[in-house]
Design a protein around this nucleic acid. Structure first.
Ligand SMILES: [Zn+2]
Ligand SMILES: [Zn+2]
Ligand SMILES: [Zn+2]
Length: 331
DNA sequence: CTGGGGAGGGGGCCC
DNA sequence: CGGGCCCCCTCCCCA
């Protein structure tokens, strides 16, 4: 069991939601306890409502589902996986909810004002529960975005009803949704370990057999279990590429996970440099950096999760910033 | 501490 | 569809 993943688990499973955020193009369910923690004035307003177990409805008619999901991922996970296009929408939704934005003050408008200037919660976003709205129009799913949703890009959008991640094809979405079911249909005949996908089982079973390490380094004759492991070895050991630079001390690393570990161990509590610092722009663009820096107890988790979350979004905006070869770093 | 390999688990794609 | 493959990202663990 991983540590630091309680909020991630809540986020992924979307169980026991008790709050519905009604957007212009659908609804997103959430948890009032977590929203309360993020917004004192929202907490105060919700305490006056719905003691009888009914969902509280929060109305953000100016916001769309995707922006609200991005905002919630920021609240639950501390991640800002937000496209440049929807950045303002996230800020506006956050402002309407009176969120305490001090921990991602990296957000700023083009004119230089920042999200930390957010005004107090607008009480008009809260209203009486309207269960028929969600029950009739948006049944059985946590997130509905197809209906009337403006197309965000020319690419097809298939979004997961549980976590909101978007996929290129319905098949990819279906495969992804198996993650939430917890089903692991593929079992290793030797050790009994179970896997979500057949290829993972195949990869695992190879390690029980003699042909475990079939990839041989042409430079030093070391052998590896995977092609990818050999590639990393060649890149870091033989060509000594260090594409991941610490924006706090300038030290460069060959692998992003090593850089992340370095920041966790060496720079805890230091925060991140100003956005104007060119070093802060790469390899992860400033908009994607969780701006709390390294002061929060969950930061290790946050940092290492940024790019993995972002990769699920990388195809829903053409101007999305993290590219597929992010592990190669910048050049 | 860092370097680095092993391993689990993701998305994209082809057939 | 699903199997199989690629490539990726992160986490674990040890030297
Ligand atoms: Zn096994
Ligand atoms: Zn080698
Ligand atoms: Zn550093």
């Amino acid at each position: 069991m991983k540590s630091l993943s309680v909020l991630e688990e809540i986020w992924r499973t979307y169980e026991m939601t008790d709050t519905v955020i009604v957007c212009c193009d659908g609804t997103v369910k959430s948890h009032r306890a977590i929203l309360s923690a993020a917004s004192p004035c929202l907490k105060e307003a919700m305490l006056d409502l719905a003691e009888d177990g009914e969902d509280i409805h929060i109305f953000l008619p100016e916001s769309n589902v995707q922006d609200v999901i991005s905002m919630l991922s920021l609240i639950y996970l501390g991640l800002s996986c937000v496209s440049l296009e929807s950045q303002r929408g996230v800020i506006e939704a956050s402002t309407a909810l009176g969120l305490n934005l001090s921990w991602y003050e990296e957000y700023s408008y083009d004119d230089g004002s920042t999200a930390a200037d957010a005004v107090p919660c607008d009480p008009s976003v809260l209203d009486f529960p309207l269960p028929q709205l969600t029950d009739d129009l948006f049944p059985a799913t946590n997130v509905i975005k197809e209906r009337d949703a403006p197309k965000r890009s020319s690419k097809s959008s298939h979004s997961c009803a549980t976590c909101g991640k978007m996929f290129k094809t319905a098949g990819l979405l279906e495969r992804h949704e198996r993650i939430h079911s917890g089903l692991r249909p593929f079992e290793c005949g030797i050790c009994g370990m179970r896997f979500v996908r057949s290829h993972h089982l195949l990869d695992h079973e190879r390690r029980h057999s003699s042909d475990a390490k079939t990839f041989r380094c042409p430079e030093c004759a070391k052998t590896f279990s995977r092609r990818a492991s050999l590639d990393v070895h060649l890149r870091t050991t033989h060509s000594n590429q260090k594409s991941f630079k610490c924006e706090l001390c300038g030290k460069a690393f060959g692998r992003n996970d090593v850089l992340t570990r370095h920041k966790m161990l060496k720079h805890r509590g230091e925060g991140l440099p100003a956005k104007s610092d060119p070093a802060a722009q790469l390899p992860v663009p400033a908009v994607a950096v969780s701006a709390a820096g390294l002061t929060e107890p969950y930061n290790y988790f946050e940092d290492i999760s940024v790019s993995s979350v972002m990769t699920s979004y990388e195809n829903w905006e053409t101007d999305f910033v993290l590219t597929a070869d992010s592990n190669l770093g910048f050049h």
